[in-house]
């Protein structure tokens, strides 16, 4: 390493990996991963979130898992929770829908209303 700039470049690169361990006040994506969720395909949904978020370097978004939310027929269910605790619940998710939620909701702050539980209830 020949300069401070090189040090900082390495730091930025590794930081993304470390973010998982840091407290931050960003968005939280919670994927329902109980038996019902996994059976309905929650695993690829989860992985898509993790990969897309890393690819876009959304350092303040954390992906976590949770157990059964009690709406098994709507699984895979994903909740996006903002720092104030407000949440948006997406239902019947798949990998493609997950990618869209990342692009629109997490990056641009625009809720993808057609995937939400409200849209599902109204249909």
């Amino acid at each position: 390493m020949k300069s401070l700039e090189e040090l900082r470049a390495l730091k930025e690169k590794t930081k993304a990996q470390m973010n998982l361990r840091n407290e931050q006040n960003g968005l939280r994506v919670v994927v329902g991963m109980a038996t019902c969720g996994i059976a309905a395909g929650a695993r690829p949904v989860m992985n898509t979130f993790v990969e897309e978020i890393a690819k876009r370097q959304l350092n303040n978004v954390k992906v976590t898992m949770t157990g059964c939310i009690g709406l098994c027929k709507l699984e895979p269910i994903v909740e996006v929770i903002d720092p104030s605790g407000d949440k948006v619940t997406y239902v019947k998710m798949d990998a493609q829908k997950a990618a869209r939620v990342v692009a629109e909701h997490l990056v641009n702050g625009k809720i993808v209303s057609e995937y939400t539980i409200k849209a599902e209830e109204n249909s």
Binding site: L4, L7, R8, L10, K11, T14, K15, Q17, M18
Partner: peptide, 25 residues
């Protein structure tokens, strides 16, 4: 309990050697 002590990259990611860099430059 936060970083892997055998991996210098993780130390650097947590601002490691930044202070030394600042001091000497």
């Amino acid at each position: 309990g936060h970083i892997n002590p055998e991996n210098i990259d993780e130390y650097i990611a947590e601002d490691g050697y930044e202070a030394l860099g600042k001091v000497i430059t």
